[in-house]
Structure formats: C-alpha cells, structure tokens
Design a protein around this nucleic acid. Structure first.
Lengths: 195, 195
DNA sequence: CTTTTTTCTGAACATTCGTTCAGTTATTGT
DNA sequence: ACAATAACTGAACGAATGTTCAGAAAAAAG
C-alpha cells in the first residue's frame, strides 16, 4: 500500500494538529508518541513528517498558534472608554475564550518546560504581550481613580490566575451557565480591584 | 563493584525522593527516566527499586506526601473566631507554604494526569478535603454577614487559584518581600469576598 | 573473626521511541 | 492517454525506556 484513497494535505494537516492537541492535553507531550498521533489520524507514523519537521515543532506551532489567536481575538474586542468597562469586557472575553479551548489552554502553560530554549522565549514573549494589555487596563483605572491596587503587575497576574481557574472545574453540563459564571467572576474581580 | 562505601538506606531513600521531585518538576514525569534519577543520586538505576516498587509509586508518594503535609500544616494553624481573621490566616499560610515548596506544588497539580486511576482518586480526595476547609471559612463568613459571595464553592476555587498564581512569578531576590506579597494578596482576597 | 543481612552493580530483557527513506499508489496537470 | 507530482506505506535505524536479577561488596550482628 501507499497513498490511500481520498488522501489530502488540507485534510490530514488539520487532523494531525487536532489529534496532537487532544493527546498532548490528555497525557502530556512527553507521554504521547508520534505513533499514537498517527493512529488517531488513521495514518502511519512516517506520514506525519510531511506536515511537521519534528515532534517539537508540532508542539511549538500549537502553542504559538493558540497565543496568536488569543491576542488577535482580544484585539478585535471593541474597547470602551472607562477602565471599569474594559476590565469587565476582558473578564468575559477571557473566560469564554479559554472555556472554548480547554486543551489549547492546558497545553499552553503545562508544556512550557518541554519547549526548546528558543521556542520557550517566543511563547513567553507572546504571553507577556497579552498580560501587558491587561495591566494597561489596571493602570488606566488606577490613574483615573476607579481602581485601587498597590501593584498593577501583581494584580494583573492575580486576576488572570483567578480567571484561569475556571478551566479546572467548569463543565457545560454543570450547575452554572456561562453567563452566571461570568457574572460571579466579574463580581469578584471588580471588588478585588475596586477602591 | 557492588555495595559502595558509606551506603545507607536512610540516606539514599530521601536523596532519591529529592532528586525525583526536582527532576519531575523541571522536565515532567514522563520526560524523566529512572536512569536520570539514579545518576543524580550517584547510583545505578537498579538500586532505585530497593526504595520504590516502580516509577508510578515514586510519583504517587511524592504527591500524597505533599498533600498530607499541606493538610497537617494547615490543621496546626490556630483558628481565630471570626471568618475574616481565619481567611486572613489562610491567605498567609497558603502563600508561604506553597512558596516554600515550589517543586512539590508544581508536581501536585501538573502530574495528576500521569497518575493511575486509583492513585488519582486518592490525590483528588485529599485536594477536596483541603478545599472544603477553605469553603468552610467562606460559608461561616457569609452566615455571619462578613462576606458576600454568590457561590462559596466557586469563590473558594477562585481564591485558591489566585493565591496559587504567586508561585508562577515570585522570586526571593525579586522586588517584593514575602510580607509585602502577603499583604497585597490579602488586600485583594479580602475585597473580593467582602460585602 | 565469622556469619548474616543490607545495599548496590552491571548486564540483560523485551518494548518503545523519534526519525528516515525507498518504493507504491492516488491524484493532478497536460 | 500519459507524465508528473503529492501523499502515504512499511520496514528499518540506533538509542532509550522501565524493570529484573544473579552476584559482589560493605555493614551489622553474633
């Protein structure tokens, strides 16, 4: 056997990335073999190398793609004038974006240690960009007297960490709807940074 | 060669656990081989099996030990009467305990997916016990009118997630002292749950 | 000193790993 | 219809994996 019926680059490529994403999130990068990914796609291990130069690049591209998507999505959210409204918009955006991609989120900060040094630097830089956007909101709020935080950098990380926590427990079949979750978290975020 | 000079069970045992803890935290459970751990200790791989039946038990015991320590340490903290004081004590305790054991903390919630099903159940149960203790404080605070949170379970997870975030950025040589970090976080926690 | 026990070595085991590649087949272009 | 290209197979590579075990040496017990 060789090339199979209906085989296409534009189909196999995404399927490989999807399978890798799910398996990496489930078992961890190091614990997943190229053969497992191939099996999931319905292909032999060697075929993967038509789509990625190696396993490391597969991981890196998943993470870099996720971070780029995250930044682009947030950039496309219209910004209000007041810091309070902007922070509220961010809270909702961050929760929803992350709940829609639990696997990518999980990988993006669980598999940092499995990146090569250069790849790690790139991802870390993307993450910092995103964090800086949030810190900008807090700084604005402090300047305009809407917020009171002793340290905007720490507050930024604290808010993000708190929101990230949703991914560890939220289930769509669960007790609370997405709107309710958003409202509860916004209540806490708002109070935490308020004057 | 065989048994080496000065070899002792009470020395090698802890050294194996220390090496495993550090290596697992640094590279991940699946990415660390028994030979790497052995090399760190200065021993051959086979010798490790005098101290652990297998690699999985090594991981499980590290995690279970950490969770037991955590619970015991918190249990030994004297409890104040008011919920506000208790929550303040918890905030300080949690931050300090976790900053003192970054590797164990990292492993305890990064390597959950590498546990067997039964081992996972055990660790999850220990974690829930700890979380329930915190929720008890919030419940008390709500009953006594000191706190206002729409959902004590979510608030518990949000507070813990926020505090856990400290481990991702705190460095002892950094800009802020431990006391300052504690004060900043307590400020945010307090406001987040306040009426 | 002699015996027993504890601690470790070094080699071996079957598996699995990431990756390469010559060959084969389906698809595309002419 | 035929030629060219893209997509994949299947086998192979050396290296590394977790684990076992007979034997050797050091330490402890007598």
């Amino acid at each position: 056997m060789a090339r199979t019926q209906g085989s296409h680059s534009d189909i196999t490529g995404p399927r490989i990335r999807e399978a890798a994403l799910r398996l990496f999130a489930q078992h961890g990068y190091a614990a997943v073999s190229m053969r497992q990914i191939a099996k999931e796609v319905g292909v032999q291990a060697g075929a993967l190398y038509n789509y990625t130069p190696d396993k490391q690049s597969l991981l890196f591209n998943l993470m870099a793609g996720h971070m780029a998507e995250l930044q682009a999505a947030w950039d496309s959210v219209p910004q209000a004038d007041s810091a309070l409204k902007r922070l509220r918009a961010f809270t909702g955006f961050h929760i929803r974006f992350h709940l829609e991609r639990p696997d990518a989120v999980f990988i993006a900060y669980m598999e940092l240690r499995n990146l090569t040094e250069e790849n790690f630097t790139v991802i870390e830089s993307l993450r910092r960009d995103y964090e800086n956007g949030v810190e900008g909101i807090l700084k604005q709020g402090v300047e305009q007297g809407e917020f009171a935080v002793p340290d905007t950098k720490i507050a930024t990380l604290a808010v993000i960490a708190m929101l990230n926590g949703v991914n560890t427990w939220y289930r769509s079949e669960g007790r609370l709807s997405l709107d309710e979750v958003e409202r509860v978290y916004w209540g806490m975020v708002q109070k935490a940074v308020s004057t």
